[in-house]
């Protein structure tokens, strides 16, 4: 279902970005915003979902929650990498720099990205079993604290040059731009849901095959 939704929404979102949303005073470069921001929000959603599954593992001991947490974090890192690359491309044209260390939001997003990238080092340095699952769940929960900090960093900063598309008065854009943004966000979330189910099915199949191989050996 999510795969169908993603397959339908992605082409629609690209068509809306290039043929419906107007080019504003920022120029054509602003078109990167429609994919960059939804990808960043999806990365937050992935990490949040991974942490939620980690909590479910620790709290209720839900079977499979550890694997679900791992897959969500894996996808979060992929979406995070896409955020950093698309953001750098936007910044190179707009600011003349690929990266600015003075920008709190960029640095905090990088910290969040590196934190969850290190999750894999932890996971693969411990033998599979309940101890690894518990450690990974706790780690995923610690990382989730960085999400609101990263998200709110730009609003807490006194001086910034990173543009603010949303503030307390709502979206700072035309209705057609906001509509395009919402479709792009829905497309990215649908893409995440589809990839999540796809990867999870592969991992479960892999685990069952391993079990079967041990039984037949």
């Amino acid at each position: 279902m999510s795969a169908i939704l993603a397959a339908v929404l992605l082409p629609i979102s690209i068509a809306l970005v290039f043929f419906y949303a107007p080019v504003d005073e920022d120029g054509l470069n602003q078109k990167i915003f429609y994919f960059h921001v939804p990808i960043a929000l999806t990365a937050y959603a992935c990490f949040g979902w991974g942490a939620w599954k980690g909590l479910m593992h620790l709290w209720k001991g839900k079977p499979g929650a550890d694997l679900e947490s791992y897959v969500a974090i894996h996808l979060g890192v992929i979406f995070g990498a896409m955020t950093l690359v698309t953001g750098s491309l936007w910044a190179k044209f707009r600011w003349g720099h690929w990266w600015l260390w003075s920008e709190r939001q960029l640095v905090l997003f990088l910290v969040l990205f590196l934190f969850y990238s290190a999750y894999f080092m932890l996971r693969y340095s411990v033998e599979p079993g309940p101890q690894r699952a518990n450690l990974c769940a706790v780690y995923s929960l610690f990382g989730v604290i960085l999400i609101p900090i990263s998200f709110l960093a730009i609003r807490l900063a006194n001086q910034y040059i990173h543009p603010v598309a949303f503030n307390r008065h709502g979206p700072q854009m035309a209705g057609s731009q906001f509509f395009t943004f919402c479709v792009c966000l829905a497309a990215m979330l649908a893409l995440f849901a589809a990839l999540y189910q796809f990867e999870l099915a592969g991992k479960r199949l892999d685990a069952r095959l391993r079990e079967l191989r041990e039984l037949l050996a």
């Binding site: 054509l28 470069n29 078109k31 990167i32 994919f35 690359v85 698309t86 936007w90 044209f93």
Partner: peptide, 13 residues
């Protein structure tokens, strides 16, 4: 140049 950056961003995704 602007078009190239926009194209690059979408191609990266």
């Amino acid at each position: 140049t602007e078009e190239k950056y926009v194209a690059a961003a979408y191609l990266v995704v």
